[in-house]
Amino acid sequence: MAAEGHDAHSPLAQFEVHTLVPIKLGSVDASFTNAALFMVIAVAAITLFLSLGMQRRALVPGRWQSLVELSYEFIANLVRDNVGHEGRRFFPFVFALFMFILFANLIALIPYTFTVTSHIIVTFALAAVVFVMVTLVGLIKHGLHFFSLFLPKGVPIALAPLLIPIEIISFLARPVSLALRLFANLTAGHTMLKVFGGFVVMLGLAGVAPLLVIVVLYGLETLIAFLQAYVFTILTCIYLNDALHLH
């Protein structure tokens, strides 16, 4: 939490969490931090983007309204294609998830902002929500039959004692890999940007070369911001589909 011990120019300094408004709930430190601030900003930006974009409700949408409709349709199609008709019920959840990750990633691309999704606790919390929800949905829909997920069809019963633990481990690894992927991509990308930024300053006039690299990297990071939000969302859809339709 504390800033000391790190050089201010360290490429990792950007990921430090600072307390903005100290709040103590009993012995729990519930302070409002810069991470929390940027989460609030992301949610506020999404709300503004959606509600202002749809304010006119024109039959022939303008640019902004098209963007809003595009994001809606994009997720609606994603859910329809990957989960099927029953997935409609989960659309609000999936849409919220996608928009939050996307906006958090995009806001983080603005210099001097904080990268919310570069903290594994944030991505893991998101993944854990997905994991718990998917498991509950599966259990409610199929009851104990849900656990047949752990024994692939056509496996000799003699192999079951070996395969079931393996399947359980890979099932439990889902949220971890989901969280790790988002976290690793964002952290690596932003660290790289900062490292090349440092080169620009150090090299003086020759710093033009790393500056060009930064331009390219920045484009790549923009792509990654979209891509990782998309990957997180589509994996959520795939897991949902697994839980709804066992095999």
Partner: peptide, 9 residues
């Protein structure tokens, strides 16, 4: 990521 996270779990 898949390999490492599964092993870690």
């Amino acid at each position: 990521i898949e390999l490492v996270s599964t092993l870690a779990v």
